[in-house]
Design a protein around this nucleic acid. Sequence first.
DNA 1: TATGAATGAGCGTTCATTCAT
DNA 2: TATGAATGAACGCTCATTCAT
Lengths: 192, 192, 192, 192
Amino acid sequence: MKNSKDFDKKDAIFNAMLELISKHGFHSSPMSEVAKQADVAAGTIYHYFKSKDELICALYIKLKEKYIETIFKNDDTNKTFKERFRHFYLQIINESIKNPKEFYFLEQFAHSPYLSTIPKAEITRLEQPVYDFLRKAVFTQILRDIPPKILVAFVMGSASSIIKLQLSGEFQMTSSDLELAFFTCWDGIKKS
Amino acid sequence: MKNSKDFDKKDAIFNAMLELISKHGFHSSPMSEVAKQADVAAGTIYHYFKSKDELICALYIKLKEKYIETIFKNDDTNKTFKERFRHFYLQIINESIKNPKEFYFLEQFAHSPYLSTIPKAEITRLEQPVYDFLRKAVFTQILRDIPPKILVAFVMGSASSIIKLQLSGEFQMTSSDLELAFFTCWDGIKKS
Amino acid sequence: MKNSKDFDKKDAIFNAMLELISKHGFHSSPMSEVAKQADVAAGTIYHYFKSKDELICALYIKLKEKYIETIFKNDDTNKTFKERFRHFYLQIINESIKNPKEFYFLEQFAHSPYLSTIPKAEITRLEQPVYDFLRKAVFTQILRDIPPKILVAFVMGSASSIIKLQLSGEFQMTSSDLELAFFTCWDGIKKS
Amino acid sequence: MKNSKDFDKKDAIFNAMLELISKHGFHSSPMSEVAKQADVAAGTIYHYFKSKDELICALYIKLKEKYIETIFKNDDTNKTFKERFRHFYLQIINESIKNPKEFYFLEQFAHSPYLSTIPKAEITRLEQPVYDFLRKAVFTQILRDIPPKILVAFVMGSASSIIKLQLSGEFQMTSSDLELAFFTCWDGIKKS
DNA sequence: TATGAATGAGCGTTCATTCAT
DNA sequence: TATGAATGAACGCTCATTCAT
């Protein structure tokens, strides 16, 4: 029976791994350190996860799910698509900036050979909401007629770079900068 | 005295490391394997590089320099900026697709904690040509008046996502897809 | 109070350990696996046995006892000693071949440092029936006048090698081969 | 290039493993202890052997080879077969008693699941001289007409038990005991 | 009794780095 | 320079054992 204590421990392990990897990368995040940070014995981790890789992959899926959920939070389907997209785009940026550990982890994972160990179907499932959101707008001729995969790559890729810019500390974005970023993206993808 | 043999060896080491990291990531690329692939003794690597990290960082700088150079190849300053930008954008995508190992290495590096070990000044120096190229166009009111850092992030980030899409094998881009991608980017950044 | 359920559990543990060790050896037979195969919790084993070593030793004594008992089954004291010995020798071989797990376990144990942890007196007690059987025949001048310990070693050692030969699958023994093996042993030990 | 130092180190590792396993068994002979006894670093072992298992198997083959060689030492083909066999049988016993570590290791190995990891062809190769020696004597009608595999099992199995008896300290064999043991074996296998 | 999550010492193994040659 | 055997700290992981329930 899963009780709250179980969840506490599994979550403590997830959090410790997230903390370490976001800061030091995969190969400087030993299981012994994860155990220490999670305040469990090294062996305990292996009751919850078969291996370090499995733990990392499970963490990726968990965070990616949460992330996708987050960026659609407060989506108001009554508004115009442009307004909804604006909300969506700024949400991506703002939420990532508020959760830098999650962002760094997801970025590292997605640009590492780990990604290819996740079945394609799983990734498709995770990203489905984003596809659906944008595809529909292509269909209704609100957005430019581009293959949705390219559209998603374009939007997410540009957003992700802007987040990194902010998090790197190189550049402090004001809200009007964010507004500019949104317009830049929107003018690119909208049907002209 | 540096002779051609020296260069051969250093390059062999660079190539071996590139090969391994692009395929297996930073961990899973042991120095012993690098030595084997480069056909030198393990100790020899340490005549050229102080440590594994230094080797990886040196490789990053080398590849990044080459990459920046490449994307400005055949830039014709007599053409309109739009034409020049189109060439630049397609060059980024096409060259990366032709050199997946380099692309994967640079991506991994740029999304890992390694990046923050490179002095900011060095990164600024490397990316200077891109900034100059775009900043000038902002100044001459060809491009939207956005902080150049955001502009660079936007352009490079969207391009990089599109490259990953193609290299992942999920989506085969035609040249008309590429053209669409260019227009999407251009319409976003151009002064309207 | 020992009830039938207790015996069931203890026996289930014994059987699981036997199964595992005969197949994978002492190492590669973790207690967690024993628990799983015996369908009890890991901790339960420690209600019946103080430690893994104690369990293994208890299993040895149990199986050795059963084995000695088995080889004297249907011993007919009215027959000639030669006939009784023939029955005894063939029984050793046939019963072992019918119970390979028990045979492999006993062999592994007897040739490992575990054996020396069993008190000599205990081993003497276990093997007593065999000594008595052969010693008496030495005394009555049916068998060659050799120290009984050597006699026992000779008979049991040769039988055990023949069993291993059969169980290894290298050689399929017919009943006439068995008869030959018996005569070989008999002609060696009988008083000439 | 293999020089004497190489051999020294490999041999030191072999000896350390032999020492430990003969005394404590496979699973109480950690590589760290082997390294300590061999006076090398833990990692050094892995320059010579891929894994612990490979080291153990290599040691088995080495010792088995040496053992087979030893038991035919000073075999005088001019003598009668009976005399040659007597020399052979006593040599087996005496050499094993003089080298208890080797004997214990070989016994443990041969009665463990390790044995089945050695290709059958390899084992056949190792035992060939014994087969040839006895088979020829069957052919020339000096020995009883038994399948040579059974003959070998019989001789080696009985000898091995007698050695264990002596090494266990339970029984001090005199040379006349040995002589008796030889006659017991000989009378069993000789053509009557 | 019975459970099984939790422990943590200790395992086999790897690998960045050194250094005698 | 170049070598590659040698190092040993540190890794991922196992597993006999314990203990709160």
